[in-house]
Design a binder for these strands. Sequence first.
DNA 1: ACCTGAACACCGTTCAAGT
DNA 2: ACCTGAACACCGTTCAAGT
Lengths: 220, 220
Amino acid sequence: MPTAERRTTGRPPRISRAEIVGTARRIVAEQGVGKLTMRGLAREIGSTPMALYHHVRDKEELLLLLLDDIAASAPRPDPLPADPRERLVTVATAMHDLLAGCPWIVEVLTADDLMAEAALWYSEHIVDAAVAAGLGLEEAVDAYRTVWYYTAGQIITTATSARRRAQDERPTYRDRVFAGIDPAAYPRLASVGARWTELTARDTYAEGLRALVRGLLPEG
Amino acid sequence: MPTAERRTTGRPPRISRAEIVGTARRIVAEQGVGKLTMRGLAREIGSTPMALYHHVRDKEELLLLLLDDIAASAPRPDPLPADPRERLVTVATAMHDLLAGCPWIVEVLTADDLMAEAALWYSEHIVDAAVAAGLGLEEAVDAYRTVWYYTAGQIITTATSARRRAQDERPTYRDRVFAGIDPAAYPRLASVGARWTELTARDTYAEGLRALVRGLLPEG
DNA sequence: ACCTGAACACCGTTCAAGT
DNA sequence: ACCTGAACACCGTTCAAGT
C-alpha cells in the first residue's frame, strides 16, 4: 500500500486521503450527501477537483472510504447480551442507529450489504447470534440478509419521508391520494383515513425487528 | 382537471401527457431510469425539453405518473387465498414482483410508501389480511409497514447488486474485504468465506417473507 | 509524484419570446 | 395555449501540460 510507505522521490503531497475523507465527512454531516461534489470538496480543501483524483479513484471510492471511516468511529454495544435473540436485536439496533445518522450510506452502498471492513462487526454478530439460537450457518446468513433488508428498507423509507416533510410545504402526493380514496374499493385504507400519516410517522423499527426475530429464530 | 376538458381556444397541443409517459416508460424499460433525462425524452418525442414542462411540473411528477401507469397495468392475483396469512404472502409477493421489474421505483419513491393511486390495492389487501388474522387496525398498518420495509430493502439491495455484477468486471469491494477477513476477529464470516457471494446471490424473498408473517401475525 | 487549467459531455430548469 | 432557443448554474471526469 503506497500511502503507508515513506516517499523518497517526487513532489511532496499538499493534500492527503485523510484530509479528503475528513472534509467530505464534514460536508456530508453539515449539508447532506447531495451537496458532496468533487468540485465543492476541492474548493473546501483549497485545491482543485483534479487533485482529488490523485488520491481517490473516483467519487464512489470516496464514498466507500467515508463509510469505513464512519463505521470505524461508531460506538459498539459492549458487553453483548448472552441470550442469542437479545444479542441479535441489540446488534441490529446498533446497526440501525448507525445508519439512521447517515441514511445516504444505504442508498449508495446497498449492493455491498454494508460490507465495508469496519462494518463487518455487525454482520459477524448477527450471524453468530443466529447460529447460537440454533440455525445452521447458511440459514444464519439468510437470517442476516432478512434483517438487513428490513433495516435498509426502514432507513431509506423514513429518511426520504423526513427529508420531504422538512423541505416541502405543499401536501405530499400521498396525502392527495389518501384524500380521494374510494371507501367501496379500499375499505381498510378509507377507515384508516387521515390517521395514516400520523401512524406511519412513528418509529416502529424495534417492534418490527422483534417480530422478525420471532419468525426467524426457533423457539428458545 | 384541465386535461379532461375540451379545449376551445388556443393552439392545439402537439404532444400529450400520455405520449410523454408512454415514451418515458419505454426508455426506462429499455435503458433504465438512469438514462431517462428530460432532454433525451424530448429528443425521442421529437420536441424540446421545455415543451415537456408544459405538460408535467417537473421530473419528479413525471416519475410519479410513470409509477401510476406501471402499477395500473400490472397483473393482480385473482382470486386471493381465503386464509389471511396466505393472502398476505400472495399480495406481498405480487407487490415484490411488480417492483422487481422496476427497482428504480423504490429508489425514487420510498417516501410515499408506494402510495400512487394504482398501488393502493396492495396496501389495502395487506392491511386487510392482517386484520383478518386478528390484528387491530393500527397494528395491521404497522405490519404493512414492516412488510414494506422488508420488500423495499430486498428490491433495492438485489437491484444494485445485479447492476454491478452485470457491468463491472473487477472484483467488488465486498470480495476484497472478504478475502482479507481475520478469522480470529470474525470467525463466523471467515467460516462462510467465499461462499458468501454465492449464498447472497440466491433469491430468498419468499422465505424471509414467511418468517416475517410468522412473527407478525398471531398463531392461526 | 503531485498538482493545475481548460475542456468534454452532460444535467434540470428558468426566462423571454414567438405563433 | 402551446412551443421554442438560448442561457444559467451546475455535474463527474479526462487530457495535456506544468513544477
